[in-house]
Write a protein that binds this DNA or RNA. Sequence first.
DNA 1: GATCAGCTTGACGTTTACGTAAAGTAGACC
DNA 2: GGTCTACTTTACGTAAACGTCAAGCTGATC
Lengths: 154, 154
Amino acid sequence: MPDATQPTADVAHSAAAPGEGRPRRRYTIGELAKVFEVTPRTIRFYEQEGLLQPERRGQTRIYHEKDRVRLKLTLRGKRLGFSLAEIREVIQLYDNAPDGDERQLRLMLDILADKRAAMQQQLEDIRILQNELDDVEARCQESLAALTRQRNKD
Amino acid sequence: MPDATQPTADVAHSAAAPGEGRPRRRYTIGELAKVFEVTPRTIRFYEQEGLLQPERRGQTRIYHEKDRVRLKLTLRGKRLGFSLAEIREVIQLYDNAPDGDERQLRLMLDILADKRAAMQQQLEDIRILQNELDDVEARCQESLAALTRQRNKD
DNA sequence: GATCAGCTTGACGTTTACGTAAAGTAGACC
DNA sequence: GGTCTACTTTACGTAAACGTCAAGCTGATC
């Protein structure tokens, strides 16, 4: 099932560098994993698939806000049934502002239209499924009410 | 990507039995496959997974309206990122009107609430993703407009 | 009656998205 | 300096959802 749980995803832990204006939060892989309720393995895998590009301090990875946002986007995409490859596409859309080429821009707009159509279809699908759930629930409630009436007859 | 294409799924082919009121449509596996744009293999697999129970005429499968509806439901579920196991659950919810047991009924209502929560989360996810797409599109349009202005300066 | 399209059942292969275990490293603490 | 804990890479394993043969049956048509 597309998991309905969504993390608040804001932890206060690493310190701001002294004399620095913005907090400039940094995360270890374990912290991010805990926050989003995934395993470190998953996060490394996403990196391997080109969805994340954390900084390296020697051998260990250091994640910044950008990475956190990307991970969040990734998990959201997964809840919507996107494959990692598709999510990567979206991410590349997102931070490739193709300023130069007009052909590129038009292509991008086309792709966006496609994604938008997919979203639209999803909305429709959800609407229908919700109706079906309503249906089942109504029948359940009815059965339950019938049972209760039955019992009160005594 | 959750496929945005959705088949109209109404073909006129098999005949109604003579003297019968309703059309009583029947489908071969190939017909269903074509209508929904999946392979026969997929449909057999869904049967193996307990999502479909077509009639058998000797060795060959015969699909009725009920099967068509189930297949449609299944594909809709897939577009929403449900696993086949979860879809089977929903289907069982759908045609198990548990008239008898109160405990069963209450459990069913709980499960329904869960599914409903998942749907709700999906709606939220879609809303957010649509906003992000809007964002990217706006940037694209802006770049494009800038290019056009540039060109018109000549 | 041969051929052909479309159905059937195995059975093994493939992709995706990780899980899991092994073996090593690096910093913090006693 | 030993011990933890949390990180690292490498590598093999696995579940889900089919794809892809292979080999055979079956009804229609030439």
